[in-house]
Computed example of a mutant assay.
Amino acid sequence: VKWTAHRPQRPDALPAALALTLINDAQSGIPRGLLASGALTAARTAAVSALALQLAAPRPVKRVLLLGAGLHAQAHLRMLQQLFPQLEQIGVWNRSPFKLNALREVQIETDLQLALAQPYDAVLTCTSADQPIIDAEAIQPGRIIVQVGYHEVSFAAIKASSKVVVDAWGDFAQRSAKSLFQMFRAGEFREQDVAADLAALLLDNWRPQPDDSVYFSSFGLNVFDIALAARVLQAAEHDELGSLQSLFSGVLHDH
């Protein structure tokens, strides 16, 4: 079970979403471990973005613009530096510039519109914006925009994209605050207009054309986080890391 508290109004510096994952043994039902899920979610999300850059980008990605400086943005930055060593440039923009001071080996962008006008092959939006910061002017042939946050991309930008790709489409389209699903509920986007999903990318070898403009909506399924949490817990048990707690001591002495 993954439990998340979304905190649009928060009086502290903790993330906007706080999550825990509880893993139970599939056969016995006995709890095996409790994990803080923020870093797991960020790693899984960045992994999906890596697949988008590798498989759904119209052209080989050489220059990436990263929007945001929080937990997800930092995970994406590590992903870019580790999995894409051939990148010629990583630009980073954030609404609060002081958060960028600790970043190294990146190009700090102070003006979002000027940054979007630069020849970046990919734009990764990892902010907590509840109103779009990406409009139709940002859509360019050969560019992929990967939306990780809630509502960072305008309906006009999605309409201007020649290909719309998702990690998955499901019942969550009826309630998610993601830009694409808001657009769907507003009657301005149809499910059949999705060009591809992760399965099509990985199994069917779907690829865009070099002059396509691709919008990739990353929703993120909790079951992926739970699977990753189970794998991390298994590794922790093997390496004897973490704190072992006795859940049932004193309970089973009598009938």
Rank of each mutant, 00 (worst) to 15 (best):
I108N: 03
I108E: 07
I108G: 06
E109M: 07
E109D: 12
E109C: 15
E109Q: 14
T110E: 14
T110D: 08
T110H: 11
D111C: 05
D111G: 04
Q113I: 15
Q113W: 01
Q113G: 15
Q113H: 06
L114K: 11
L114T: 14
L114I: 13
L114F: 03
A115P: 00
A115V: 03
L116V: 07
A117R: 14
A117M: 04
A117Q: 10
Q118S: 08
Q118R: 07
Q118T: 12
P119S: 00
P119Y: 00
Y120R: 00
Y120W: 02
D121S: 05
D121W: 08
A122E: 03
A122K: 12
V123G: 02
V123H: 04
L124P: 02
L124C: 03
T125M: 15
T125P: 00
C126S: 08
C126K: 03
C126E: 06
T127G: 09
T127A: 11
T127F: 06
S128T: 14
S128K: 09
S128V: 05
S128W: 06
S128G: 09
S128L: 15
D130F: 12
D130N: 15
D130Q: 15
Q131H: 11
Q131E: 11
P132C: 13
I133R: 05
I133D: 01
I133W: 03
I133S: 05
I133C: 13
I134D: 04
I134F: 07
I134W: 02
I134T: 12
D135E: 13
D135W: 13
D135A: 10
A136K: 13
A136F: 12
A136V: 13
E137M: 11
E137V: 10
A138I: 01
A138V: 00
A138Y: 01
A138D: 02
A138K: 11
A138H: 01
I139C: 03
I139W: 05
I139Q: 05
Q140H: 06
Q140S: 06
Q140M: 10
P141D: 10
P141V: 10
P141C: 10
P141W: 12
P141M: 10
G142K: 09
R143D: 13
R143E: 03
R143P: 12
I144Y: 04
I145L: 07
I145H: 02
I145R: 06
I145G: 01
I145M: 07
V146I: 14
Q147W: 12
V148N: 06
V148Y: 04
G149E: 02
G149V: 04
G149T: 01
Y150H: 14
Y150C: 05
Y150P: 08
Y150W: 08
H151A: 12
H151K: 08
H151S: 09
E152Q: 11
E152G: 08
E152H: 09
E152V: 07
E152W: 12
E152D: 09
E152N: 15
E152T: 12
V153H: 09
S154F: 14
S154W: 12
